[in-house]
């Protein structure tokens, strides 16, 4: 019987990942880009499904659309990641390709904020979110369950 669990891996204190910024870290041997999009955190594997580029090093921009030819409009500023090698666009909030959302995606991981480590908590009376840790949850095998 196999079982798995999500384990939180700390990335950095919240204050080190401001709005619209990203941080590329290595967690559990994987290169992962962590993004702060409008105060929400998203984590994507730093590997483009097309040719293996470090996709999280691409430029962040908006989604260009058009209700009719020759009338481009910009939506969702800052939520679209464009791969640095061939320009494939990905929705940072889902990892899905803009062109082929059902077929192509960058692997994504849940990300969020957890309270700071115990040591910080004992030193401070109040814990605010700005002192929390950005974490990425990665699936790990639950060894205990496997043993039993």
């Amino acid at each position: 019987m196999s079982a798995a669990t999500l384990t939180p891996y700390p990335v950095c204190p919240v204050g080190e990942l401001p709005l619209g910024k990203r941080k590329i870290v290595t967690l559990k041997g994987r290169s992962i880009g962590v993004f702060n999009i409008g105060g929400r955190y998203f984590a994507l594997q730093n590997r483009c499904p097309h040719r293996g580029a470090p996709v999280c090093e691409g430029r962040l921009g908006g989604f260009f659309t058009a209700s009719e030819p020759y009338a481009p409009a910009l939506e969702r500023e800052g939520e679209i990641l464009r791969c640095p090698w061939h320009g494939w666009e990905f929705d940072v909030t889902t990892g899905r390709s803009v062109c082929q959302p059902e077929k192509v995606r960058v692997k994504s991981y849940p990300a969020g904020v957890e309270p700071p480590p115990e040591t910080a908590r004992v030193e401070k009376y109040d814990v605010t979110e700005s002192e929390g840790q950005v974490v990425v949850w990665i699936v790990t095998e639950n060894v205990e369950k496997l043993k039993s």
Binding site: F64, P72, H86, G87
Partner: peptide, 17 residues
């Protein structure tokens, strides 16, 4: 299709492959 996937944002009125 490869051109569109790479350059879609320049002609966003092209909606499909």
């Amino acid at each position: 299709d490869a051109s569109w996937k790479a350059l879609r944002a320049q002609t966003p009125w092209v909606k499909r492959l």
